[in-house]
Design a protein around this nucleic acid. Structure first.
Lengths: 83, 83
DNA sequence: GCGAGATATTCGCGGTCGCGTATATTGACT
DNA sequence: AGTCAATATACGCGACCGCGAATATCTCGC
């Protein structure tokens, strides 16, 4: 299932979901992407000042990619994504 | 056309494309997202230490959204993206 | 309810962000 | 060529990154 993200929190949640799917631990993912477990934790928590490099490294380590596209759903529907 | 991004540079290029499509200037976009023109410039250039907040603000200002999904193409093909 | 693994959080450090402000440099158009 | 808008780059500043290393807290299965 693809993940739509409009906030850093949603990005973090998506990363976490895919990581667990692949049965990785934060420490394990951290090793793959040359970052610390603490850094992965902050990324998944949606820290808004996380650096782009960290995100892209995580995506690469999980074999994911990003798609940028015009917003599809209404603002109302987007609220559901929070749950 | 949706934009696939695996590097900060590709993200920046995507942002730039959508910004121009909407006939925005860097300064104009900056005002919408409460950032300076110089910051938008660095984002579009693909500075890897750009903060996630900046990216999401830009996407929101351009009415775009992010999708996280498994990589579609082969790893071999991904190498070409570097050039 | 224990214990072990996973995750969250802290300290000091060097680095770089984005900010305000200001100035190059580039690009498009006449 | 000349002009002006658009973009790129620079300086000092305060803030916060990710780092190493370590610790605290949470979450399971048993």
């Amino acid at each position: 299932m693809d993940t739509i993200a409009r906030t850093p929190q949603q990005i973090g949640a998506g990363i976490r979901r895919y990581r667990r799917q692949k049965k990785f631990t934060q420490a394990g993912l951290g090793e793959k992407m040359h970052a610390r477990q603490a850094t992965v934790s902050k990324l998944e928590a949606g820290a808004p000042a996380t650096q782009l490099r960290i995100l892209m490294d995580a995506l690469a380590a999980l074999d994911l990619e990003l798609v940028i596209r015009p917003r599809t759903k209404s603002t109302a529907e987007a609220i559901e994504d929070l749950f």
